[in-house]
Structures are given as C-alpha cells and as structure tokens.
C-alpha cells in the first residue's frame, strides 16, 4: 500500500498529464492524410482506450486466478473492479471506433456496423464482461460469488485467442492491423508519435486511478458492512 501523499501526487500528475495530452491531441498540427483528414486525431484516443481495455482485462483475470488460489475477498473485488473499468474503456473504445468508421470506411453510405472482426471481437468482450456482472449479481453468498465468477472470468479469457487471431482470418477487415495494412509503422509521422505515446501512458494512468479508487471504495464498504453485521449479531 502506498502512502496517501504519494497516491495523491500520482493522481494529480495523471490529471495534469491527461489534460496536456487532450489539449495537444486537439491543437497540435498533424500531417494531412487523404480520407482520414482531421479524424486521424482519434488515434490519440481510440487506440489507447483499446490498449487500456486489454490491460484491464489482463489485470482482472490475474486477480481472478489469485482469488481461486487464495480465496480472499480483496482479489475478488479487484477482479470485479478491473472488469468494470475494462467495460468502461471498451464501451468508450467501441463508441469512438464506430463513429470513426462511420466517417471514414463508410463515408457516403448509411452503414454504421458491418461485422468487422475488430468491432465484433470488442463487442463480444463487452458482452462477456456484462455476462460476468450478471453472473455476479445472481449470488447472495460472497464466497460462492467470488469462486464461480472468477472461474467464468478465467474460462472466458481462455477463448480470447480465438477472437484475436482466428476471427480476423474468417472475416475480411478494413481495420488497420490487417495484412498489408499495418496499424502503426515507420511511416507514421513523428509528430503523431509525440502525442500518441504519452496518450497511452495517460490512459493507463487513468485506468490505474479509476481502478484503485473503486477498489478502495469497495474494501471500505466491505469493512463497514462487516462491522455493522458484527455489532448486530
């Protein structure tokens, strides 16, 4: 556990950092790219959101495995809260992605959604984490809830490679990162890297803040509830 002072220091620097990143993302000059034009600025927001969701998913499954080994309440709460933040970032990522696709891939058509493999797999991720929370809410007993939902989390995670590697081979994709169309390469303008890399760090920091705040809140709530129950018994 880090001290409150250091925690506040990190939290405030993430806030300042994110403010700078967002301002730079909107104001700094970018190269003129056909079709993309100024929507290329979405690179600073959409891509880090997706990275952050993956990081949150990995944190969540890590704590689920830990919970299955140790059976402590804390790692169950951590897994649940990391999943909640993953859901949040996934939702933001899919929203920015769909809007971005609408004005570039589907420019001039009425198409919003086309089962692109990346869009499909992130939608599936959102469904899996929603199902995880539905499963959680169906238990009264916290020991059972922790054990069963951790098992579901780990089980769902093992099918992830199919979404990431097999699905793109079954469907054609317009998304960068497919064959012959790298998402990010040596031709990417250095000016964009100047904002993109800090944006990744900033979003990861934002995830860490949201996640630790939620975990602290849940742990406090848990201990208050326990004290209340003990006083009344």
């Amino acid at each position: 556990m880090i001290s409150t002072r250091r925690y506040r220091l990190i939290r405030n620097s993430v806030f300042v950092w994110m403010t700078v990143v967002i301002t730079a993302g909107f104001l700094m000059s970018i190269p003129k790219i056909d079709i993309l034009e100024h929507t290329a600025r979405n690179l600073y927001f959409h891509v880090p959101m997706w990275f952050t969701m993956m990081a949150a998913a990995i944190v969540s499954v890590f704590h689920s495995i830990r919970h299955l080994r140790k059976r402590d309440i804390e790692s169950d709460l951590r897994a649940a809260e990391a999943a909640r933040v993953a859901l949040l970032f996934g939702f933001m990522g899919i929203t920015t992605g769909v809007v971005w696709a609408k004005v570039t891939w589907y420019q001039g058509t009425s198409v919003w959604w086309n089962f692109d493999p990346r869009q499909t797999s992130v939608a599936i991720e959102l469904m899996v984490y929603s199902a995880y929370f539905v499963l959680r809410s169906s238990f009264e007993d916290s020991e059972l809830r922790g054990r069963i939902s951790a098992a579901y989390n780990v089980f769902a995670f093992t099918t992830m490679p199919f979404l990431l590697y097999v699905l793109p081979r079954q469907l054609d994709s317009l998304h960068p990162g497919a064959e012959g169309n790298p998402a990010f390469s040596e031709i990417t303008d250095p000016r964009m890297r100047l904002v993109f890399y800090p944006a990744i760090i900033g979003f990861m920091g934002l995830f860490w803040i949201l996640y630790t705040q939620r975990v602290r809140y849940r742990l406090l709530k848990n201990s208050v509830e326990n004290r209340y129950l003990n006083d009344n018994s």
Binding site: A131, V134, T159
Partner: peptide, 12 residues
C-alpha cells in the same frame, strides 16, 4: 447469456 458470447468464433 454466459455461453453465446464465447461461442461466436466457433459459430463462424
């Protein structure tokens, strides 16, 4: 609810 999201790659 639990199984359908996981089965999408299999379905394809």
């Amino acid at each position: 609810v639990l199984m359908f999201p996981l089965l999408l790659p299999l379905m394809g």
